[in-house]
């Protein structure tokens, strides 16, 4: 090679070197996958861009957040089968427990890693009825009436439906005083259920599009969404005297984040859910904020209701799940009795 041609090459090499160092000095970019359940679609649609902006401002790094939604149980199953979620934000702790037990990709005590049992926002179960409440449904008792048709998804597949079932059971227990009577009460309600859809959105469509049923047992946030999206003139919300505190829980899937090098971002993502801004976005989408300040700001929007917890009444998910929803559990038995 002649010296002449090398002199031509030199500036090129320098330029290439500069470009290379420049690209190293540039901000890192990350991709997160948040595997969530159905009714959080609108929440994360607003939360994700807010987080991306916040993280860029704080660290200079770029983040892209990918979303996956579906029935909570099915989503947990997908993560177990290998869907690479950096974080999971599911409808109930049991589904997250299942991932921890089956994959060992994060410790089984995950729920103690974040505040409020790893539930940054909470919700509850309310009744959605048709405008004017033609069947005069006021409380859980009315759901057991013979002339009332109740819409709920299937507790075997839907996280929301498990909360529905447990809330009804808790009411029966408080009012009638014994487990056996509570069970009869729940059975009476499920006798009034014409179809069991597999997920919350399916049930919403059954109640709204197909016009089936008098009462729809729904997440509080989902009920507000229905009213806002599909008309205040068609539906109204009825708050029962007692309901259950539903805690949708979140966690980082450690092994996946480690593999993808996203541990820090994933943690920051969940922390941001607990921040003022994150809490406000959750509240805007009718999730109850856990931050007391933000809760005060949005107090007016949430309905006053006596809330029991699964830990107090049912001894936590680890006990309630197999007892009520496992194969051959109470729900299976009730269904078998009803279809005999």
């Amino acid at each position: 090679m002649s010296s002449h041609s090398f002199s031509l090459l030199k500036p090129l090499l320098v330029a290439a070197g500069l470009a290379l160092t420049a690209s190293f000095a540039q901000a890192a970019s990350y991709e997160l996958l948040n595997v969530s359940y159905d009714p959080t679609r609108e929440l994360y649609k607003e939360f994700n861009p807010a987080f991306v902006k916040y993280y860029k401002a704080k660290t200079g790094d770029d983040v892209t957040v990918k979303q996956s939604h579906g029935g909570s149980g099915g989503q947990a199953r997908a993560v177990i089968d290998g869907l690479d979620a950096d974080v999971v934000t599911l409808a109930l702790a049991y589904d997250v427990d299942a991932i921890a037990q089956k994959t060992r990709k994060f410790p089984e005590n995950w729920q103690t890693r974040l505040k409020h049992n790893s539930a940054p926002y909470t919700s509850t179960i309310v009744f959605l009825v048709r405008k004017g409440n033609p069947k005069k449904v006021k409380d859980w008792d009315d759901l057991a009436r013979e002339d009332v048709k109740v819409i709920t998804p299937n507790p075997k597949t839907s996280g929301g439906a498990r909360w529905n079932y447990l809330a009804a059971w808790a009411y029966g227990l408080e009012k009638y005083g014994s487990e056996a009577k509570a069970r009869d009460f729940v059975k009476q309600i499920f006798k009034n259920v014409p179809v069991l859809d597999s997920g919350a959105r399916g049930s919403t469509n059954t109640f709204i599009q197909r016009g089936l049923g008098d009462v729809f047992l729904a997440w509080e946030n989902e009920s507000f969404l229905v009213i806002n999206e599909l008309g205040k003139d068609k539906f109204e919300i009825v708050v029962p005297s007692l309901s259950i505190l539903a805690e949708p829980t979140v966690t980082v899937v450690d092994e996946v984040a480690k593999k993808k090098g996203t541990e820090k971002v994933a943690q920051a993502y969940l922390d941001y859910l607990y921040s003022r801004e994150g809490q406000r976005i959750a509240a805007k989408h009718y999730y109850r904020p856990t931050d007391p300040e933000v809760a005060k700001e949005y107090a007016k929007q949430f309905l006053k209701v006596k809330l029991i917890t699964i830990d107090d009444v049912f001894g936590g998910w680890k006990k309630a799940q197999p007892e009520h929803f496992g194969d051959g559990g109470e729900f299976d038995k009730i269904q078998a009795e009803l279809h005999r």
């Binding site: 996958l33 595997v35 990918k66 979303q67 996956s68 939604h69 579906g70 989503q75 997908a78 869907l83």
Partner: peptide, 8 residues
């Protein structure tokens, strides 16, 4: 087999 990851 999808995993429902939007846009992907």
């Amino acid at each position: 087999v999808s995993g429902n990851v939007r846009g992907e």
